[in-house]
Design a protein around this nucleic acid. Structure first.
Lengths: 135, 135
DNA sequence: CCGCATCCAAGAGGATACTG
DNA sequence: CAGTATCCTCTTGGATGCGG
């Protein structure tokens, strides 16, 4: 059984993120972490080696880059090619599945760009209202 | 300056998730956590009180529900209405901004449903290849 | 160059008990 | 009913050092 969260009228349904059959859980496991999203964005349609990716995704540690790329490879989102030279050269490319993720992620980014201002405004006024009496 | 991650040709650009101006960071801060996504889905177009939401979003603790709702209220995604009766009744509704999030999130869910099978297959074969010699 | 292993600090998040 | 406060555990993720 597949649990949809956003299909039709969502309100009436119970949502179990721990249900293995719930694809939403899968989305969140993979898309939920910032690095996967950023790597998809950083890779785009081209091929890049490890060190190049590390440079593009600013602030990522090598541990997280390795770990995230492994997860994406496991999920079939990214293709890893090892060129057995000395020193080793390893290249990463998005698979078709990985590429197809770009559209929905872009939709989220568009939403974000469109609403960023409004969100910041709300935050500011909320913080004023909830202020623990500035003194 | 606004940093786009998925606009046009992403590959060549450096991505700094820590840059305050990068909306992708904002998406991830809010959409990144599973609970926000699930609450948006659970609420949909209707109004629900706290306990009803807790029932719908299976597995969420009351602490996380409160905390996530507060964050969403602060961001202007959800409207919180307190009815000063005894006992108190508190109702939550998605704002227009919150409602508008449903479309991009649904796009992600659709992607997830479409690719779930392929992802599971990849995981299985990857795990076999990488198996530390079953013994 | 790529990446694994180890250690360690910080935060997320559950369980529980109490309040208006 | 709808939280707040406290405690405590488990995970996340950075830093560092080693190895093919």
């Amino acid at each position: 059984m597949v649990t949809t969260v956003f299909g039709a009228e969502a309100g009436e349904r119970r949502i179990d993120p721990y249900s293995a059959g719930c694809p939403t859980r899968r989305i969140l496991d993979r898309i939920g972490d910032r690095w996967t999203v950023l790597i998809v964005g950083a890779l785009g349609a081209d091929t890049a080696r490890f060190s190049e990716l590390k440079r593009r995704v600013e602030g990522i540690s090598q541990k997280m880059l390795t770990q995230t790329l492994r997860g994406m490879e496991r999920d079939g989102l990214v293709l890893r090619t090892v060129h057995p030279e000395v020193p080793v050269r390893v290249e990463y490319t998005l698979t078709d599945a990985g590429l197809s993720l770009r559209a929905p992620l872009k939709a989220l980014e568009d939403w974000s760009i469109e609403h960023l201002g409004s969100v910041l405004d709300h935050q500011a006024s909320y913080d004023v209202r909830a202020a623990p009496e500035a003194r």
